[in-house]
Design a protein around this nucleic acid. Structure first.
Lengths: 130, 130
DNA sequence: TGTCTGTTATACATATAATATAACAGTTAC
DNA sequence: GTAACTGTTATATTATATGTATAACAGACA
């Protein structure tokens, strides 16, 4: 797997794990229907506890990114990730507002901020080409 | 004060408080040199503990938003907030990457995402006009 | 002398994060 | 049929984060 964790980060491990998998889907490194490692093997691979992996998987399931078959295993959601709805837009704005507020205070122009966003989008698109 | 807290939120109160003050600066509701309430009076106003306010103030001081005079009080930094540096850009990208990854998964186009950012910028600019 | 600052110190309750074991109930392969 | 594999559940423990409650200190100031 491509997953990299930072054990010094203040971000919880299960959150980092979620983000890594979501990023994998975004850059099409993981595609619909593809199998993910079992909670035990991934935990062993990453040197963390099985419950930490399970927590990440449960939340990814809850948010529609993956499917979990009780005795088969875990797969990226075959039907694709649910499209953004009103609630998601609201949540996204809640995330962006503090970030934009601080950027304004620190003298970043709107153009600079959007440019950074575009760079990140570019990074995901380049990731697609492997 | 204009500060609104959500006690049901998963976000810590001191974090919400920080964001509210930073947003106040961004929309120029708070300007350089302006005094902020004392830890005790703000805590009483908001119905929270003085240590919670103090924690927010300490972090805002650490990040250059405010100055704290030992026996005078708290003021918005008179010299303005420190400009964005390399470390800030890195931190900003770290915040945006997971957000953008999820948006891509949920079918948002780059244009839609940037449009949401622009809306938020617009909100702060309109806030300036009181 | 009070009253106001921020600061510091303790203590306490609760929640979250992460780990460590153990066991259960199905599936699948040998 | 047994062994190895799934996710799941349950318990327990440790550490850290969050928030509150008091209390006290030292300096400023009217």
């Amino acid at each position: 797997m491509f997953i990299q964790l930072d054990f010094e980060s203040k971000k919880p491990i299960y959150t980092q794990l979620k983000h890594e998998i979501i990023a994998g889907i975004a850059r099409k490194d993981l595609s619909a229907g593809e199998a993910l490692p079992s909670v035990r093997s991934l935990a062993a691979d990453l040197g963390i506890n099985l419950h930490t992996v399970n927590k990440a998987y449960q939340q990814l399931k809850q948010e529609g990114f993956i499917l979990i078959h009780r005795q088969k295993g875990v797969v990226i959601h075959p039907d694709g990730v649910p499209e953004a709805g009103e609630d998601y837009y609201a949540e996204l704005k809640e995330t962006l507002r503090p970030s934009i507020a601080e950027s304004i205070c620190r003298g970043l122009s709107e153009e600079e901020y959007l440019s950074i966003c575009q760079d990140i989008f570019k990074g995901f698109k380049e990731g697609e080409k492997k």
